[in-house]
């Protein structure tokens, strides 16, 4: 995946029984972001695979003051990449 300077990982192990995931996002490379942000902070949030979109969550993070508007695309992309990976893992027979 393209390096956005952001890292998104599962905050809890995925047991594949729930469409809602707990994800954690943090800034790995501040130089890749356009706006200011708080250092060394991880943001944990829920993401529903069926009803949520990465763009929507990124927008909420911007509105909540975690990121500058200009970084919302990078935030959305980071979430989208991780969610795609989780979905692919779930689709594999041995994924869960």
């Amino acid at each position: 995946a393209e390096d956005t300077g952001l890292r998104v990982e599962l905050a809890e192990e995925d047991d594949c029984s729930n469409s809602s995931l707990a994800l954690r996002l943090w800034v790995e490379d501040p130089k890749k972001l356009k706006g200011k942000h708080k250092d060394n902070e991880a943001i944990e949030f829920s993401f529903n695979l069926e009803t949520d979109t990465p763009e929507e969550v990124a927008y909420e993070m911007v509105k909540s003051g975690f990121f500058h508007e200009s970084d919302s695309k990078a935030v959305a992309k980071s979430i989208r990449d991780r969610v795609s990976l989780i979905k692919k893992t779930r689709e594999k027979p041995a994924g869960c």
């Binding site: 902070e41 943001i43 944990e44 829920s46 909420e60 975690f66």
Partner: peptide, 27 residues
């Protein structure tokens, strides 16, 4: 450690915590 919770108007809850040092800049 201190945790901060922010609830967006849409209802989603964001929990802010410090990133463990071991997770920073790992490649």
């Amino acid at each position: 450690s201190s945790l901060t919770q922010v609830v967006h108007s849409a209802g989603r809850r964001f929990i802010v915590s410090p990133v463990p040092e071991s997770r920073l800049r790992e490649s």
